[in-house]
């Protein structure tokens, strides 16, 4: 059986908000290591990779690997019924037809349980190799969100170029062009999460669809910083770390010159 108790139930809402615009269903894989999900969007252009490590739960029990196929839209509806301060417990049997969500209010004066039907999802899992990135950019997640939104107002595709001087985001649309350069700032008075850091072994440049990058920024409430990893001619990874728990990562295939 599987049973996991999460003290910060609001975290589940944030995780679901970060994927609900991209996928409509997915297999949550319960394993002794934690709860994970890998799923492609319907156009198979991007890949979501979520990990919530077992250590991040107050209580975690998983005797064997269990794929828990869930409709994300329905899951969002159910988790919305939890208060943002509620403690959430997820429970299911080894071959579940249903998953139970137990919500306990912080003061323990209200307990709710919801049961949701599971579904069988045939999805192919991709093997994402442990990659050494040519360029890694860490920046405030709110700034990345703003930047993607601004770029999307002008064009459909953003070209991201990383050099040791900084990261340049460029786009072109019917009305004109836009360029935004974010420079690594010196580690002065700023808090770590307010800094922009660039690590590169060589300059990298590639084009990506803004529609997807904008969807990824729905994960902004999960982390004060976002990390972009690039390798020439490979998908970009956009990572939001979840403190003491794991991550939400998005991989987006580049646009290639025809």
């Amino acid at each position: 059986m599987f049973e996991a108790r999460l003290l910060q139930g609001g975290l589940l809402k944030k995780v679901l908000d970060s994927i609900k615009d991209i996928i409509t269903e997915g297999n949550f894989d319960c394993s002794p290591n934690g709860l994970s999900l890998q799923a492609m969007d319907s156009s198979h252009v991007s890949l979501i990779d979520i990990l919530l490590e077992s250590e991040g739960f107050e209580h975690y029990r998983c005797d064997r690997n269990i794929p828990m196929g869930l409709n994300i839209t329905n899951l969002v509806k159910m988790i919305k019924c939890a208060g943002s301060e509620d403690i959430v417990t997820i429970k299911c049997e080894d071959k579940p037809d249903n998953v139970t969500f137990l919500f306990e209010s912080k003061d323990n004066d209200k307990i709710s349980d919801f049961e949701m039907k599971t579904m069988t999802i045939d999805d192919e899992h991709l093997l994402v190799p442990d990659q050494t990135y040519t360029a890694v950019v860490k920046m405030p997640s709110a700034e990345f969100q703003r930047l993607c939104r601004d770029m999307a107002a002008i064009g459909d595709t953003v070209n991201i170029s990383v050099t040791k001087e900084g990261v340049r985001f460029s786009t072109t649309g019917d009305m004109g062009t836009a360029n935004i350069t974010v420079r690594p700032n010196p580690s002065g008075d700023q808090k770590e999460e307010e800094r922009t850091e660039v690590q590169i072994t060589e300059p990298v440049s590639a084009g990506f669809a803004l529609r997807y990058l904008n969807s990824f920024t729905k994960a902004t409430p999960l982390s004060p910083t976002v990390t972009l990893g690039m390798v020439p001619n490979l998908p970009i990874v956009v990572e939001y770390k979840i403190a003491d728990m794991g991550h939400v990562r998005y991989y987006l295939a580049p646009k290639i010159e025809d």
Binding site: H125, L126, P129, Y251, L252, A253, I256
Partner: peptide, 14 residues
């Protein structure tokens, strides 16, 4: 003109 690649063309299937 740029062409959108699919994600599965970059990663092996498990």
């Amino acid at each position: 003109k740029k062409r959108q690649m699919g994600i599965a063309s970059f990663f092996a299937r498990k």
